[in-house]
């Protein structure tokens, strides 16, 4: 194992060791996605029962697909933010930052933990949707992988923004880790097309990678068509988002070193 890979693994091992011993932490990872799936699964079942048409079934599928894919974004973002905050809460950042761990290796470890946390969180909800509501997310086909990747990158970009704010403002910015993505949800067109939004709000929706992914998802589910232009737009926007977030992180990390905030963080 090269030095960089070992350091990334070292930080991931720190989190994995914690999860290995704590079943409440594992339950917490999948609790909310499963609960969301139950609520929206029953809602979709109710709609199908009342409307009794194939249209209702399709609408239900779009609803459940939206729930599951939005959880991918949310869990990816929280996976990075909460792993960083775990270091802060344990007052361990001083030791981490005086080790030879490079800032980009820290970010790589946080992203690795985000993938693991997202998988543990979302997989039970996907299985639940398939077992109880006859909704198979994998029926979207190979394009699902591209949807996942785009939503994860957007989650990571938002998370790096949150970590940057924590580096700048300390524990006062922690609450953003839980709430920030909910603020973007109305503009992300998770459950409805962007065209439903008022005209003045639509430009906001179109700069979010997520809205392009959800438009693409509905294209596959409702029309059986993969809108590659939507995916290309999502990828392009993600490049800008993750690039901007990385610059912000690098800048705030440097500023924290100027202010001496790294040692006192979490106090």
């Amino acid at each position: 194992m090269s030095g960089g890979v070992r350091r990334v693994w070292g930080l991931m091992y720190r989190h994995l060791a914690l999860y290995r011993r704590s079943w409440p932490r594992l339950v917490e990872l999948c609790y909310w996605p499963v609960l969301q799936m139950c609520i929206w699964g029953f809602t979709a079942s109710f709609l199908a029962m009342r409307m009794g048409s194939s249209l209702a079934a399709t609408a239900g599928a779009a609803l459940l697909g939206g729930v599951l894919l939005w959880e991918v974004t949310l869990r990816s973002q929280m996976g990075v933010s909460i792993s960083f905050m775990e270091e802060m809460w344990s007052r361990n950042l001083g030791h981490v930052f005086v080790s030879p761990l490079r800032p980009w290796e820290l970010v790589a470890a946080l992203l690795g933990m985000s993938i693991i946390r997202m998988t543990i969180g979302v997989l039970p909800a996907i299985l639940l949707a398939w077992a109880f509501y006859a909704f198979n997310l994998f029926a979207l086909g190979p394009v699902l992988v591209l949807f996942f990747i785009n939503l994860m990158i957007m989650g990571w970009a938002v998370a790096l923004g949150v970590v940057s704010l924590i580096l700048r403002h300390g524990s006062g910015a922690e609450a953003l880790a839980w709430g920030i993505l909910f603020g973007l949800a109305p503009f992300s067109a998770v459950f409805y097309p962007v065209s439903v939004l008022p005209a003045v709000v639509q430009p906001i929706a179109w700069v979010l990678p997520s809205s392009h992914v959800f438009e693409g998802m509905r294209g596959v589910l409702l029309d059986g068509v993969v809108h590659w232009e939507q995916l290309a737009a999502a990828f392009g926007l993600n490049v800008v988002w993750i690039g901007g977030a990385s610059l912000l992180f690098a800048r705030q990390f440097h500023a924290a070193r100027v202010r001496g905030a790294l040692l006192s963080m979490g106090e």
Partner: peptide
């Protein structure tokens, strides 16, 4: 110790 052992390779 394992965590820091990895961080310091």
């Amino acid at each position: 110790l394992r965590v820091y052992g990895h961080l310091y390779t």
